[in-house]
Design a protein around this nucleic acid. Structure first.
Length: 303
RNA sequence: GGUGCCAUAGCUCAGUUGGUAGAGCAACGGACUGAAAAUCCGUGUGUCCUUGGUUCAAUUCCGAGUGGCACCA
């Protein structure tokens, strides 16, 4: 029996959660969330975690499973998600992966190169170097340790340079020697369902969702975690703008407008990423029955 | 009703001593292999309100119209 992973993806606010619950109910299976922020148990309102009543309808994984204090990454997500999929596929033939974190979805579907886990002390030291001495200092080191990667990397993006340096320093080998960029074999078939809608309507939904978050107490939630504002997990739309407001850098109204704008930008960025993936089958969120039929037919073809 | 001011990008506005125009924000496009809701790069999208006139040439000057604002009645 061929195992099938249904991937539900699309821009933030398009309606992925509702559809994935429908799909999971129809195929009598469970949902793995692929959302780099809903994974943190401390965050709920600003990350638009589905309400408990929805989470109870179907078993959900990797929502609220980690802490904002934990280091987390796409490769850890790959590992976590594959482990859970393995469990689900012991009893079921179908599983649903849903969320908008493009890189995380890609790590599960295509895999990610094998690299040593990042030493957090080394990272902290390099970040300090970057802040003190600037990007040029990092570039020079990378040019020496990995000229091949140096010639292809975006030299203005300090995170790329920094990560390559981490690997070079930890292993003594050039980062580029680890970059296989090969698609990994998976013990399951994948059906990608992309949800999209008219851009204007999507933006309107996003704006309204932000207003709702504010009514539901986003300001309180953000205030609670303001002391942790330097954590990467809190470098997140919905929180960082409110932190600026707490510091008197903006008014509340400006902060809310910025949350809306940054959410719209995020949605656009997601669409840019998804656009280049020819495996995605695009639908409107309202086409629930068409989607279920489409998936069911695909599964029958493979059997 | 009278007088004055204004009308330029989605918004707020700048500008052209007459040679068809540019800032901020918004918007749009792209990159992406362990921080990814992160990080980085790129793009001006325009009947210069309408209509006559002057001029080789009008968004710019003049007249009229329309709309808006202010003041006076």
């Amino acid at each position: 029996m061929v195992k099938t992973l249904i991937v539900v993806l699309g821009p933030t606010g398009v309606g992925k959660s509702d559809l994935s619950i429908r799909l999971a109910q129809f195929f009598k299976t469970e949902i793995i969330s692929s959302d780099s922020r809903q994974i943190f148990r401390e965050l709920s309102i600003g990350t638009a975690v589905p309400p408990p009543s929805d989470l109870q309808k179907v078993k959900h994984h990797l929502i609220h499973s980690h802490s904002v204090h934990d280091y987390y990454s796409a490769s850890q997500f790959e590992e976590d998600a594959l482990k859970i999929l393995d469990q689900i596929f012991k009893e079921k033939n179908v599983a649903v992966l849903t969320g908008g974190s493009m890189f995380y979805i890609d790590a599960v579907c295509n895999g990610i190169d094998d690299l040593p886990h990042i030493d957090q002390k080394l990272r902290a030291r390099l970040i300090f170097d970057y802040q003190e001495k600037g990007i040029e200092h990092l570039r020079l080191q990378l040019k020496q340790m990995d000229p091949a990667y140096y010639s292809s990397v975006d030299l203005k993006n300090h995170k790329r340079i920094l990560h390559a340096l981490e690997i070079c320093l930890m292993t003594g080998k050039p980062y580029s020697s680890f970059r296989k960029e090969e698609k990994k074999e998976r013990p399951f078939q994948t059906i990608k369902i992309g949800l999209n809608m008219d851009r204007e309507i999507l933006y309107e939904r996003i704006n309204q969702r932000v207003d709702r978050m504010i009514r539901e107490g986003l300001e309180e939630e953000a205030k609670q975690y303001y002391p942790l504002k330097t954590l990467n997990s809190l470098n997140t739309v919905g929180y960082k703008e409110l932190f600026a407001y707490f510091e008197g850098k903006t008014s509340l109204e400006e902060a809310v407008d910025l949350i809306k704008r940054n959410s719209r930008h995020y949605a656009r960025k997601q669409l840019t990423w998804f656009r280049k993936d020819p495996e995605i089958n695009w639908f409107l969120p309202s086409q629930e029955n068409e989607i279920i039929n489409f998936v069911a037919e695909k599964i029958t073809e493979w059997e």
